[in-house]
Computed example of a mutant assay.
Amino acid sequence: MSEPLKTSSGRLGVLTSHLLTAAPLSLRAMASEKEAALAAVPSDSPTIFDKIINKEIPSTVVYEDEKVLAFRDISPQAPVHILIIPKVKDGLTGISKAEERHYEILGRLLHTAKLVAEQEGLQDGYRLVINDGPKGCQSVYHLHIHLLGGRQMNWPAG
């Protein structure tokens, strides 16, 4: 028997009832994100992030300037989980699509991550994650950095 589960990407994933009831929450979240990533298809259609940038979908913005937007993830994987995105996609659907013309925005995204980490009080450390492609668990094809902190991270990741 399967039950639908809404993922952070807004897509519906399907997990078995056994997995939903028996697995720890962290495993359930990972499984649903993996399913969302495997089901995601890059397209020219607006992504959920485009809709957040255009204020069509509400978000909790923690930082914004003319080129970058940072907002809280609706399905946090750590006490602090913020997504940092470029406001203009410019073909940058994932890090594997980066070209020389993207140098400035890539640097700006990383610098913004540092500023937001300071703002969030993460002086003891944090992790930055960029998922790329289906096997990298990317479910939204608009480059984004996950800023995770507020707890001890483990290694290896993934």
Rank of each mutant, 00 (worst) to 15 (best):
A98T: 06
L25T: 11
A117T: 12
A39W: 07
I74D: 05
G133Y: 01
S45Y: 04
V80T: 14
E35G: 10
M1H: 01
V116N: 11
A36P: 14
G13E: 10
L25K: 13
R108M: 11
L92Q: 10
I53K: 09
H146E: 02
G13H: 13
Q119C: 01
E118H: 15
S8I: 12
A78R: 06
L106K: 04
K51A: 07
I105W: 09
A70I: 10
T16S: 14
K67N: 15
E66V: 07
E3Y: 05
N54K: 15
P24N: 10
L143W: 08
E104T: 11
A22L: 08
E104R: 13
K67I: 07
A113M: 12
Q123F: 13
K6S: 13
N131C: 03
V68H: 09
N54Y: 00
E56D: 13
L106F: 12
F71E: 08
Q138Y: 04
C137N: 15
P42H: 04
G121R: 05
G107K: 04
V14A: 05
M1V: 01
I57N: 00
T7V: 11
P79K: 03
L27Q: 15
H146F: 07
S2M: 02
L106I: 15
K51N: 10
G136N: 04
T7F: 14
E3K: 14
R127W: 06
D50P: 04
D132G: 09
D44L: 00
I85E: 11
P79R: 03
L110G: 09
K67A: 13
A113H: 10
P156S: 01
S9N: 11
G150D: 06
L147R: 07
T47H: 08
G107E: 06
P24S: 12
L27W: 05
G94H: 10
Y63N: 03
I53W: 13
P42F: 04
K89W: 07
A40L: 01
L122Q: 08
L5Q: 12
V88H: 14
V62Y: 12
F49Y: 13
K55W: 00
D124I: 00
V61P: 01
V140Y: 10
Q138I: 00
A23S: 15
G125M: 06
H111A: 12
A37S: 15
M153K: 03
V68S: 06
G94L: 00
H146M: 07
R127D: 03
N54C: 03
H144V: 13
P76W: 05
Y126V: 02
D132Y: 12
L69F: 14
S43E: 04
Y63C: 00
S32D: 11
A36L: 07
I85M: 09
K55V: 01
G133E: 02
K67S: 10
G150I: 08
K87R: 15
I84M: 05
S32E: 14
I82C: 13
A70V: 09
S45M: 03
P79H: 06
K51F: 02
V61N: 00
H146I: 05
Q77H: 06
K135M: 14
F71K: 08
T60V: 10
E33W: 02
E33D: 14
N54T: 03
L83E: 08
G125C: 04
A40H: 00
K6H: 14
